[in-house]
Amino acid sequence: MANTILSVFTRPMARSYLKSLNNIPMFLVHNRSIVCPELLGIRCLFAKAALGIDGYIQMQEQIRNQMASVADRFKEKMLEYSAENSNNMIFTEDLKNMVHLADSDDDIKVVINMIKKYNKQNKSMRFGNYIFGPVVMRMFHIHKKADLALECFKSPELSNFFDQYGSYQILCDILYESQKYKEVLETVQIIKEKQGEGLRYPKNVIVLALASCYKMNTKESLEYALKLWHELREIGHYPTRKATTFCTALAINQGKPEIALEILSSARNSGYTTVRNLRVLALSMIGRIEDIIPILKSVLRVDSPEGQLHTFNRDVLAKVKEAVDLSENHQVILEFTRLMELFEKQKLISEQTLDNDLCTEIQISRSNQNNQMQFLSRRPQQKFQRPVERPSLYDLV
């Protein structure tokens, strides 16, 4: 086991390694979870507004209203113009209208033919600066066309057409919502190969990659996640809290609480609910029961200006209780029981599962959208260093 993960850390993440993920039996997904992923329904990780889909729908309604009387004839013309043997050019305005009018599989095929032809046209004929990549991806998203979206992204005929941070995120989100987790990782690898050093890790794409690893919940997905984590830290990038907690939860589910605690040590907000719950869960797994009590007590003395309660998840506390009882430390058992009574009285126990909190939909304000689309933040002139006496992730595997 140690040699397997160490070898992944020390070699490039080649596509051959990604292909090996395709051999994972699907019955292993969600197996032996401690943080149990929801099995029913498809959870959205990013809110529609964060992907610009709300704006797409508004424009769609506007164009459909404007062209209601001519839409069918317009579509027929676009079918004719997009044919390979047609000498007609594809103009920006026509493509814009067709992307928003598409409402059937046939219409989407026309759009695909149009963008291929549009991409081939002499760039000197394009006088506008309209960027179609994210808009076309939004079309695929609302029509739930994950396979087509990935096929177009990989198509040589559409080289550079989808090379925008927005397109990357929307594509990975389509694949994630379609539960195509291995395809998310494949897409991330393509993005890394397309972009230069320092620009290969769009922060929201990294969140989706680690969320996919968490959902896969296998030894191989943990290896991938740790390799990606190591790459980020090597160049001084600091993953977001969401990415951090997905990676931590995966390590816990794969029986690696030591790795989970190391990952959590880089969390920017140690008091955040998911960070706090994951920490006590990992500590309980390695038998450090005494260290859990101060963390539990910490929520009793927190006064939030918004009146928001700082809570622990009931499913996490149930796991902690099992570890406390097994410890046979009567003093800790009494203190834990007293704290549980206080938590019940003060309503500090959340009925939401930890998985539900981990996968809470991400809202991104418009003012923060451009920054969130781009690559992970870098702390100036600071590279991740660990004290010599502390074990590295390599040593913990």
Rank of each mutant, 00 (worst) to 15 (best):
I42S: 14
D106V: 07
L51Y: 00
C44W: 08
L45S: 04
Y81S: 05
Q66P: 05
Q62G: 07
K96F: 13
K75T: 04
D107M: 03
K96M: 13
K109M: 06
Y56Q: 05
F74P: 01
M78N: 07
G55Y: 06
G52K: 00
A83M: 11
S82R: 01
Y81C: 03
K75H: 08
D106G: 11
D105F: 08
I108E: 01
G52S: 05
S86P: 02
F91Q: 09
K48I: 10
M67C: 07
M67Y: 08
A47M: 12
E84Q: 14
L101V: 07
M98R: 03
E84S: 12
T92E: 15
A83G: 06
D103V: 00
E93G: 10
V111S: 02
R73L: 13
A49L: 06
I112W: 00
A71F: 02
N85F: 06
L51R: 00
A47Q: 15
N65D: 13
S124Q: 10
K48W: 10
M78G: 03
R64A: 05
D105G: 15
K48G: 11
L79A: 15
E61Q: 14
M98W: 07
K96E: 13
Q60F: 01
D54Y: 07
N122Q: 08
S86E: 09
K77T: 11
K120D: 13
R43Q: 15
N85R: 15
E80T: 04
E84T: 11
K123Q: 04
M67E: 12
N87I: 13
L101N: 06
N87V: 09
M59Y: 09
I115A: 02
Q62L: 15
I115V: 12
M67K: 09
Y118H: 05
S69E: 14
I108W: 00
V110E: 04
D94Q: 10
G52L: 04
L51W: 00
D103N: 10
S104M: 02
E76Q: 12
E61M: 12
A49T: 13
D72M: 09
M59F: 10
A49K: 11
A50W: 01
I42R: 15
I42N: 12
S104C: 05
K123L: 01
K77L: 13
K96R: 13
K48N: 15
M125E: 08
L79P: 00
L45A: 04
A47G: 11
K96P: 00
K117P: 00
G55F: 06
F46E: 08
I115Q: 04
M98G: 03
M125S: 14
K120G: 03
E93M: 12
S86A: 07
A49D: 14
S69L: 06
I57D: 00
A71T: 07
R73Y: 11
Y56A: 06
A68C: 06
N97W: 10
Y118W: 07
S124N: 12
I57E: 02
K77G: 03
Q62E: 14
I90V: 09
E93A: 13
S86W: 09
Y81I: 06
